[in-house]
Nucleic acid binder design. Structure first.
Lengths: 205, 205
DNA sequence: ACCTGAACACCGTTCAAGT
DNA sequence: ACCTGAACACCGTTCAAGT
């Protein structure tokens, strides 16, 4: 058998990504396999390799779309907060809400390692930078006398911090049950951090 | 062939764990396979299943030993710091130093998921609680008027925070190159957090 | 040109059979 | 009693062969 042409390359790409997302969302990324995805869209394994470089590439595309959804959620939530501090806290809450809603997709972003420790492609790095800019923006609004470098440093520290709480919560390493408790811990982190940050003329060591 | 009895069960266990650690340290946990480990110790795959329940169990044992090494390093470093605040900062630095020295072993602790989301065994949870107590102890020394609950919350927030910075650094998501820069970001997090924490009569929302 | 399906070199896990 | 090795049901990836 051959030459079906039921779908365009772009359609197959979309079907493949959607099927992968479905498997990841319901069974986790451990359950993702080329054969399973191919079966789900009614093609054979070989076809996937006409559209994607390999499984690593497929996962990278999936992760890109996860980052897009996360960005959308965050931006939407940012439209309903009052001042810079409230908006910064909202950033953390939105992040956790997403991780809680799509734990497997979210984890895959950080557990997926490219072969030979290669750098992710530019389009991917830009998505991350794009999201990161939102944190830096809010931190900058709170900074009274801090330099750009200190603001960048603070944004990385705080985003890393919120991220870590998420991870530990999802892997049950925090001894904290439920999303509410995670949100409370995140609030503790951000609240104390911001207090320390705005109260200092300079944070440089 | 059969009945070699060259080694006791305990010796095979030790050889298996050592070989697994070697593979993980040099090639990452993706490269770990039952057949590869068996080959490295001169036995066939079947033998591993006489000593370990399955590969998940083997990894759990490896992770337990990783936690032990981390604990040793932290406790040793804690003997050379001046006051509570310095010791707390040292905790973060030790943690990052370990993650940097043994990135693959360290990552495996958080990427390993038990089947069906089962809880890890008691002996494993105790190792984590043991290490966590070190953070709580230092936080408690810095707390002037905070309640036990606030101290526990703060310890979780701060440890989660340091952990997250580690992850993002290792996965190149922080735009920060090198251990020094990671240590600086961690310092920013801890310094601002502690400043906020000690300056507040109560952190309850 | 597009897709198949068989092949290759791997997996984790089990278990009858050998000594 | 201890260990093997073959079997089973899977993997990712490639590519000659079919239409």
């Amino acid at each position: 058998m051959a030459r079906r042409s039921d779908h365009s390359r772009e359609q197959i790409r979309e079907m493949t990504l959607a099927a992968s997302e479905e498997i990841i969302a319901t069974q986790g990324h451990q359950a993702l396999s080329a054969r399973k995805v191919a079966g789900a869209i009614g093609y054979t394994v070989g076809t996937l390799y006409l559209v994607f470089e390999n499984l690593d590439d497929l996962i990278l595309q999936v992760n890109g779309r996860t980052l897009d959804r996360l960005y959308e959620l965050i931006v939407e939530d940012q439209r309903h907060c009052a001042d810079a501090e409230a908006c910064l806290f909202q950033l953390g809450h939105s992040y956790i809400r997403f991780a809680d809603a799509e734990p497997y997709a979210w984890q895959l972003i950080f557990e997926h390692r490219l072969a030979d420790d290669r750098e992710p492609p530019d389009w991917y790095q830009e998505k991350i930078a794009h999201m990161f800019a939102l944190v830096e923006e809010r931190i900058a609004q709170l900074a009274a006398h801090q330099s750009d470098k200190e603001i960048a440093q603070a944004a990385r520290a705080l985003w890393g911090g919120v991220h870590g709480i998420c991870i530990l919560a999802i892997t049950h390493t925090l001894g904290a049950a439920g999303v509410d408790s995670v949100q409370a811990i995140t609030y503790t982190l951000m609240n104390n951090f911001v207090k320390g940050f705005v109260s200092t003329p300079s944070n440089k060591q």
